[in-house]
Write a protein that binds this DNA or RNA. Structure first.
Lengths: 298, 298
DNA sequence: ATTTTGTTTTTTATCTACAATAAACATTTT
DNA sequence: AAAATGTTTATTGTAGATAAAAAACAAAAT
């Protein structure tokens, strides 16, 4: 098999669930644009919808005959892209207890366990290597460097440099910039979450990511943006893993964010830097406390 | 063909030129370690040296019979690793005049022109993408973002953050650290080059890279180190390309380096920061001036 | 004249195979 | 017994093939 048609299946599901009986569908290019796929794929979706009797399709006439049921959709295992499958599987492995720093990573073994070819695994590892968690010796194996204390400290250092820079840039944005509106909305979301913290503290990590992304966008720097992508992925898996004292930790972080937002809003660079440093210091503590115990420096 | 034996050929050449008639060669593991290859490859080298009548090899007895000549060596085209070939070829293309920002990059076309398979080109592009000069749209083509003014400014911003951090860390190193000895040697090299600047100004870029690498090593941060790798590669090709006013530019940079070294040596953090900023400001200017004219923001 | 659909071509994503290289194991030599 | 050599096995690096997806081209409809 050369390639899975996951793009088609995933887009098919996405389109099918949004269909409403008796409505007319737009033109092929419009459907393609809505779904973010090519017209070829959009046509493949229409073809299948037609074959399944979900729509009647004749050139420009496209009418929804019936609501698709769950049985019309592709199962979720078939809609995940190979890259996502590999990423999830790999992250689970390196966060598992028996993944000790210094461990070798075997491409063929990994590919077999995930049930995929070696090329995809190789490409994933190359992409993933920029997160600093694995390293390759040429003509030889990859080595897991792991979530060690060194890793956390190095990550935190760079994060602080970048965030202080971005926060300062944010403070310099002209007042008619969309970012200020987004920031105000963000404050409201923080307040809302705080009002129902006992129920909603688990949603904080998503809000946290969006908040810092908003700040970082102000710097308009591709290297900072890339680094934040890396952080987001690492935190995404890491927080799924480590959930100790989440409520207290998140509540405190929300308060810090609110102070930080107020400082940004004031436009006072000294206040911004101060609030940013306060938050970054506790974020660093959180990160260090959440390290897996076995992953001490190799 | 599955794989070129460039590791073997390159190591063979390296070992052959160092041979001296009538000397005895060490054990296989030792040879392998010297060359930085596996014993399998070391044995392949000994086998060929023996077949060519350059050595007599009988178990532990390995004697050099004659000095290898140029004709014994593999031609340089056969010793370059595929990765290096692709890198060189690709950098030449994106620095060429007709490489406009926004241009599409075609994997298959690139592979054919370089005379290699698509897999290697893909992997190269994935690795190269972290330098921020190209970008991929999933399921579609790569786009050349190019050496634009934005790129230079973003690069310079991050470089400044990192170098200020590293320089401060350097100033905090304990006095018995090897880095101080290296720094003193580095100052002497700068002075020597300055004494013969008209002849040697072209060697500055190598010294410049080594100098900044020394500074950055003090921060012991993998993200900073990786970023500096990227800078070094980009500058390597970029400076080969742009050579305007090299003598004056380099002479001034040497003076700045010497001031910077003196500041580091003093251990005074304020002086370090000042000297570092002075140098970084002119380095930024140099970078901006060296931009290709056509590569203005797309 | 522009937009939509129909059809063909190009390009990417992924698998498989295999030589080069590294690594492991076994035997011999000192 | 430790280190070297001899031999076998495992793993990586790369080419080539192919289905999926995108893109380009052509014809038809508003």
């Amino acid at each position: 098999m050369a390639r899975q048609n996951t793009v088609f299946k995933e887009a098919y599901n996405r389109y099918a669930v949004a269909l409403r009986t008796d409505t007319a569908l737009p033109s092929e290019p419009e459907i393609a644009a809505q779904l973010g796929v090519s017209r070829s794929t959009a046509r493949a979706i229409l073809t299948r919808l037609s074959e399944e009797g979900i729509i009647r399709w004749n050139k420009r006439q496209k009418t929804v005959l019936r609501q698709p049921t769950d049985r019309d959709l592709f199962p979720s295992e078939e809609t995940d892209s190979l890259h996502d499958i590999i990423e999830r599987s790999f992250m689970q492995r390196i966060l598992a207890d028996d993944a000790a720093p210094g461990m070798q990573i075997n491409e063929l073994e990994l590919a077999r366990e995930i049930g995929t070819g070696t090329t995809s695994v190789r490409e994933f590892l190359i992409r993933f290597s920029r997160f600093g968690l694995i390293e390759k010796r040429p003509n030889s194996h990859w080595t897991l460097k792991g979530f060690t204390r060194e890793f956390a400290l190095e990550l935190a250092d760079v994060r602080e440099m970048f965030e202080l820079h971005s926060a300062a840039e944010f403070g310099r944005l002209s007042r008619d910039n969309q970012a200020w509106i987004d920031l105000a909305a963000m404050r409201d979301e923080h307040l809302a979450m705080l009002g129902d913290i006992n129920e909603r503290f688990k949603d904080f990590s998503v809000l946290d990511e969006r908040f810092h992304l908003l700040i970082h966008r102000a710097s308009k720097n591709r290297f900072i943006a890339d680094f934040y992508d890396a952080i987001a992925i690492i935190f995404h898996y890491h927080y799924q893993w480590n959930k100790t004292a989440a409520r207290e930790r998140n509540e405190r972080a929300i308060h810090e964010h609110l102070d930080y937002i107020a400082a940004l809003d004031s436009g006072d660079q000294a206040a911004i830097e101060k609030a940013c440093r306060v938050h970054l210091r506790s974020a660093r503590q959180t990160l260090l406390q959440s390290l897996p115990q076995i992953a001490e420096s190799a």
